Simulated assay, not measured.
Amino acid sequence: MRADNQSLLGGPPRDFILLGVSGRPWLELPLFLVLLVSYILAMLGNIAIILVSRLDTQLHSPMYFFLSHLSFLDLCYTTTTVPQMLVNLGSSRKTISYGGCTVQYAVFHWLGCTECIVLAAMALDRYVAICEPLRYALIMHRPLCKQLMAMAWLSGFGNSLVQVVLTVQLPFCGRQVLDNFFCEVPAMIKLSCANTTVNDATLAVLVAFFVLVPLGLILLSYGFIARAVLRIQSSKARHKAVGTCSSHLAVVSLFYLPAIYMYLQPPASYSQEQGKFISLFYSIITPTLNPFIYTLRNKDVKGALRKLLTKLWQLCR
């Protein structure tokens, strides 16, 4: 693909070429099938959790209020990236427009930072439920939950806005080949032909803040939870307390470990080859696994799903 004159002068290009697995064309069909199946499962699983959290009165609690927001985030995550990846994997012309690319990394970073705070809010909910059970309803009241979610969405949007403003000012000279499956800020910075010190520093500081501060709060909450669980005399009560936290801990690990590896490494050591597959992991695998992690270990959610499916079956008969 030839570069246009605007690109040669360092202006915004018309299209980006997304290489994906161009070096391994034999991977395209298996990857297409994996992505398609994962996307369908992610959509069905997360929509099911949102529906049962809203429709079943037994799940009208802060825990499931936060879980429904997490599922909505995962829905948006996959929809932002996977359809474009499927189109490119099934086509010989693997491109995305400059505007589409900008929207993709803007929404992706918005959702990512929002999810960091949502996971911290869920850890706070588990802390209050286990360490302050008698005051749970008083502390985790509905207005506070809504305020926490509003803060999460607005903070994520603010971070995304800063990243977009800085990234759209970068010149991209010559042939615009993005060695990734979708547009992401680190890959965009790597592609620019200008000095990106300010972009690298801003990205590092903001991501460190949005990743490490919520992660620190999560670890602190679970430190208090662990101490409280060890003091519980009844093994049944202890097992129940651990069970309510294990799903959340699994989701936190799936989300934070790739994000830390991806964003909190020095720019000089950033590897496009490793980065794009890690991006693929937390953009599709994590949102696909989250609903199953919560449903397989949660009797309330499984019961609500059974009731929902029974009602749907009766309506279809």
Rank of each mutant, 00 (worst) to 15 (best):
P13Q: 07
Q176M: 09
L35P: 05
F16E: 08
Q84V: 12
M188R: 04
A121Q: 07
N159D: 12
L308M: 15
S192V: 01
S53N: 04
H60I: 13
L41Q: 12
P12L: 14
K311F: 10
L36W: 06
A129W: 05
G112W: 05
I40R: 02
L31A: 11
V162G: 08
A137N: 13
M85G: 01
N180R: 01
V162A: 10
M188W: 00
T81A: 08
D300C: 06
L35S: 06
S53P: 05
K190Y: 05
A123H: 03
F16V: 06
F281M: 01
I189K: 03
I278G: 02
L280C: 03
M140Y: 08
G156P: 11
L309T: 04
M188N: 03
C113M: 09
R24W: 12
Y282M: 05
V164K: 03
T244I: 11
P258F: 03
S22C: 12
L257P: 03
L206M: 12
M149E: 14
L309V: 10
T81K: 07
R238Q: 12
Y270D: 08
Y64G: 07
N298I: 11
T197K: 10
A226N: 12
M262V: 03
I47C: 12
E184A: 15
A250W: 09
A228N: 06
I260H: 00
I47V: 15
A204T: 15
Y136W: 04
Y105W: 01
Y39R: 00
Q147R: 12
F182Q: 01
F66P: 02
M122W: 00
T202W: 06
H239K: 14
G10Y: 05
L67T: 07
M43V: 12
G20L: 03
G156Y: 03
F210P: 01
S234Y: 05
V185Y: 01
L264S: 02
N180F: 00
L67H: 00
K240D: 15
E132Q: 15
A201P: 04
V165S: 07
I285T: 07
L148M: 15
G10L: 07
P62D: 14
G216A: 14
K302M: 11
F281L: 01
L73T: 13
P62C: 13
